[in-house]
Computed example of a mutant assay.
Amino acid sequence: MSADFWAGYVSGAAGILIGNPLDLVKTRLQAGSGASTSDISSAQFSPQAFRGHFDRAGTLVRGATAPIIGYGALNAILFVTYNRTLEFLGDTPTVPNNLFKVWCAGATGGLASFVVSTPTELVKCRAQVSIDNTNSWKIAKDVWKREGIRGLYYGGGITCVRDAVGYGFYFWSYEWCKQTLSSPTDTDGQSAMKVLLCGGLAGVATWASIFPLDVVKTRVQTQLLHPALRVEGERGSLLQPEQGANSSPPRNRLSTFEIAKHAYQSEGSRVFVRGLGICSVRAFVVNAVQWAVYEWMMRLLRQP
């Protein structure tokens, strides 16, 4: 396989290993009304909040199995698609000249990664929100058994939109930052530091641009684990919560629009930025490392 495939895979797996503890807190904040988020809704960064989430050593990597495998593959597909699309558009991936083409190539990569990102995100989010220590493999097995492949792609529409928009800005912001800060006189050490900085800033810019979509996506994919939700609208139905991982799914599920509407009506507009602070910290660290690993792997694999 190509160098960018393996560089993307390794960098994606490295990012998950580093960022999973903060991602767990972010997901629980986004998921809302469950008991697991009540202890930190007003104090995201307090020591008590973190202790409440990391109640045992295993919690630090809860939900990480699916992303380590899945996100590595996702990142590989993302970078390969981005590079090939940029070449197809007549630009050079190593030093692109047109930032609009960079955005389009990144959005195309995001669309392609949807194949992996939707089931990975669904399993990860349910594992992180679950209060009964259900692991990723059991969740994936139960979803497949009850609903087949369609169940693993639940919430795929909003995930697809989120990935296309987000990765468009991801590559655009990274290349813009890199071109702005880079200089022909940079030493190897200076270049490495600038890659870390540009990668971190790109991660923050990306999540800031799509965070409301991600909040809704998380709630769509974890709604079976929530307490009952009463929705006003055409259905006017009551969603019954899922009682354990092996229970039958509820009769009705809320659409993406209904989830967003209910969140706004019950918690106000601030719900769509809940967890953005800790997500930004995670995004900076994870994406700084990811870009540094990717650039290093590309240089290593391209050596004769």
Rank of each mutant, 00 (worst) to 15 (best):
A35S: 15
M297W: 02
D132V: 11
G200H: 02
P304H: 10
I18N: 03
V215S: 06
R282N: 08
C104R: 06
R302W: 07
W103D: 01
D4K: 10
A107G: 06
P67V: 09
V161N: 07
E147N: 09
A192T: 12
E147K: 09
G32F: 01
A192C: 13
I149T: 12
F169S: 07
C177V: 11
R230W: 12
G106C: 00
H53P: 05
G156Y: 00
Y82V: 04
P119N: 07
W6V: 08
P96T: 03
H226E: 11
R230E: 15
S269Q: 13
L229Y: 06
T118L: 09
A164K: 02
A107K: 02
F257A: 12
V80S: 03
L276E: 02
V25H: 04
N287S: 10
T218N: 06
I149W: 09
P227M: 06
G236K: 09
R299I: 08
T185M: 10
G168Y: 00
Q30E: 14
G70L: 00
V231T: 15
K26H: 08
G8H: 04
G233P: 05
P21I: 06
V143C: 07
K261I: 07
A127C: 10
L24M: 07
Q179D: 13
F5Y: 05
G157H: 13
G189L: 09
N135Q: 10
P212Y: 06
E232K: 13
T108H: 00
Y82G: 01
E242N: 12
Q265P: 05
A107S: 10
Y294W: 12
A263F: 03
S248K: 13
C104Y: 08
A245I: 04
F114Y: 03
G109C: 15
Q48H: 12
T37Q: 04
T27R: 04
T65N: 08
A283T: 00
D91T: 07
V165K: 06
G233L: 06
E242K: 14
G106P: 01
V116L: 04
S46A: 11
D4G: 07
I210K: 04
Y264K: 13
P250L: 11
E242Q: 15
S191C: 10
R84Q: 09
V10P: 06
G109T: 14
R51W: 01
W103N: 01
A263E: 05
S173Q: 01
A263W: 01
W207T: 04
T185S: 10
E232T: 13
A66V: 15
I131S: 15
G52C: 11
F54H: 10
Q48A: 14
G58L: 07
I158P: 01
G268P: 08
D39N: 14
L99I: 05
W291G: 02
A64H: 05
N98G: 12
C279A: 15
F54G: 03
R219P: 04
R230A: 15
V215N: 10
Y264M: 12
G151K: 03
R270Y: 10
D39V: 13
I77G: 02
N252H: 13
L60H: 04
G32R: 06
D188E: 11
